[in-house]
Structures are given as C-alpha cells and as structure tokens.
Nucleic acid binder design. Structure first.
Lengths: 113, 113
DNA sequence: ACACAGTACCTTGCGCCGCAAGGTAGCGGT
DNA sequence: ACCGCTACCTTGCGGCGCAAGGTACTGTGT
C-alpha cells in the first residue's frame, strides 16, 4: 500500500519533477503516458492526482509548453515539451543531484561496517 | 537564501531522517551537534526548527531512545541513540536508497546527449 | 551579586507537494 | 444507444522542512 509517509513517496519529493523533465528531453510527452513510464520504475510510480498538478506547476514556471494533438484512437492529448528555460533548469538539477547523491552515499553508506 | 521550495530543501525530504540515523550509528548524538554536522554538508544544512520535530518523530517511531547527560560546559544535552528497530529501518533504507539513486541516475542521466 | 552571552532545548504557523478519490468528456466497438 | 477505454483535471488531506519565536541552564566579566 505504501501509504502516506512511505519510503518511496518521500524520496520522490524533489526529484520527480526533474525525472519528468528528463523524459521530455527524450521527446514530447503527455500525462497518461508519463504515468505509464514512471510506473515502470519501482520507485517512481505515481498516479494522475500527482502528475497533473505537477505538470501545471512546470507550465506555470515556464519550463514546459503544451500543444494539443489528436490521438490515433481516443480523446486528444496535451503534449508537453521542454522550453529552453526548462532545459537549463534540468541541467542545473543534474549538478545538484550529483552532489546530493554523493553526500548521502557518504553519510548513510552503502552497507554497514 | 534557498527559500521555500528550494532545490536542496526538496531533495532532503525522505533522506534527512536517515542521514540522522546514520550519524547516530557512528555514536550518540544530540540536537545542536546534529545541526552542526549536517551544516557542514552543503546539501543537508538544516535549522533547529527542522531537527527537533524530526527527532521527536524518530522517538515516537521507536527508532531512537534518549538519555540526558550533563555537558562539560553548558546546559544538559539530550543524547539520541539507535534502537535495534532503528538500526533495522536504516538497513532497509540503504537498500531502498541504492535502488532509487540508480533509477534517478538512469533517467536524468549525468550529462546531456 | 548581577547582567549578559552562549548553549541547548522545544513550539507555532505556514507553504509545498504527493496522494486517494472523485469528476468530465471524447472516441470506438457492438 | 450504450458501455468501456482513454485522457484530462480538481478537491481535501496529511506529512514535513522551515522561519521565527520562546524558555532555561551555564559560565564569565564586572
């Protein structure tokens, strides 16, 4: 169930939005597809109640822009793509992440003494 | 200033409490000293308003226990030490963290194509 | 004795964000 | 016409890091 306060839930905070940006870097994405792709990662599985508010924030921040496109079968989709600003923010995150990751590795270690 | 919603602030979520547990594994700790030690890490600097509620949660969870000890100079300190339960939770986190870290590395990558 | 700085503990109110649950609507098959 | 699937979005809640504020004990200087 991984209820509120679950381990993965807290870990996601702060990285999830950049994982989403990184996926957009590989190609335009839409909401439902993002939920599917992240669902394939054990630690990043999220629901629609998470992704849509997140995407709205990215849009308000000017890091992504959207275009409606018809689906080959089904309702139209809102596709999200990186703006130059979003690309820059993602690069900045990569540096922050590398430092943070190494710090945590050093402090919690990878196995016990 | 790293105001609310800062990059590091969000990254800390979900790892901070385990970094604290890991520091206790090396030896008993008290609040103010933890603030100092974490302050030495660029990405983990926190304030007292963060550490004391966090320590209370750890205590309520049964992961740490506390003993008051006099200080060589100054008011008494409340020292925190790991319980067996806390030690076990820390081990569990180590495994979760390794998976999570590798997942993020794979998705956001370490540099751009 | 007394004031003051330093250390150490803790609480309050706020804002962010992931989540479960619920809601709307377009499309295709039968 | 109906039903199921896809796709989008919103509401209310809870957890947690934080700034700011508050209390108390100790040692030092006067």
């Amino acid at each position: 169930m991984e209820g509120a306060g679950g381990l993965s839930t807290s870990l996601r905070r702060g990285t999830l939005e950049f994982c989403v940006l990184a996926l957009m870097e590989r190609g335009d994405q839409y909401g439902t597809e993002l939920v599917r792709q992240l669902g394939a990662e054990r630690n990043l599985a999220i629901s629609e109640g998470t992704i849509y508010p997140l995407l709205s924030r990215l849009r308000r921040s000017g890091w992504v822009e959207t275009t409606w496109r018809e689906s080959p079968s089904g309702p139209p989709r809102r596709y999200y793509s990186l703006t130059p600003s979003g690309s820059s923010v993602l690069q900045h995150f990569r540096r922050e992440w590398a430092v943070f990751r190494d710090t945590v590795d050093r402090i919690v270690g990878t196995d016990s003494p």
